[in-house]
């Protein structure tokens, strides 16, 4: 096996993950992408979704993240996310509330495209949370 990737997940509050893994799945804004050791340098925005670390020290690890961006370098992946949670920490009730809030925003948006985008983002985040909850 080739050398391992250094993976770091940073939130505004702290460094949540600092570990090594064989591969990282990143929820890019335009779709999931997977980075292995030696990946070409890449910078992407992040959509709401799950980050999965394959072959990390403690086996598989996954985190729900939203709003941020990721930098991929051949030997290192750094993810900056405003929100990051472990699947078992997700509060489904809260996510449901957020989804409803998003729907309310959508209904109220009228003809302002910026508001639709915002509502969509809120809903996508809530959906990602609900989906990711409890999954390993």
């Amino acid at each position: 096996m080739a050398t391992k990737l250094k993976v770091r997940l940073v939130t505004p509050e702290r460094i949540l993950v600092d570990t090594e893994a064989d591969a990282v799945e990143i929820p890019g804004k335009t779709g999931y992408l997977e980075a292995l050791y030696g990946h070409a340098p890449l910078l992407t925005e992040i959509g709401a979704g799950m980050v999965r670390l394959h072959g990390a020290e403690s086996g598989e690890e996954s985190y729900m993240i939203a709003r941020g961006f990721a930098e991929v370098l051949p030997e290192r992946v750094t993810i900056l996310a405003e929100e990051a949670e472990k699947p078992e920490e997700i509060d489904v009730m809260k996510a449901q509330e957020q989804l409803q809030h998003g729907e309310a925003l959508w209904n109220k948006a009228g003809d302002d495209p910026a508001k639709y985008t915002e509502a969509n983002e809120v809903m996508a985040e809530a959906n990602a949370k609900i989906e990711g909850a409890g999954k390993k």
Partner: peptide, 18 residues
């Protein structure tokens, strides 16, 4: 040094958008 490596990044989205 984050994001400043002296390489040409592939930008998933246009740089201006990011």
């Amino acid at each position: 040094n984050f994001g400043t490596a002296e390489v040409d990044y592939i930008y998933e989205q246009p740089a201006a958008e990011i």
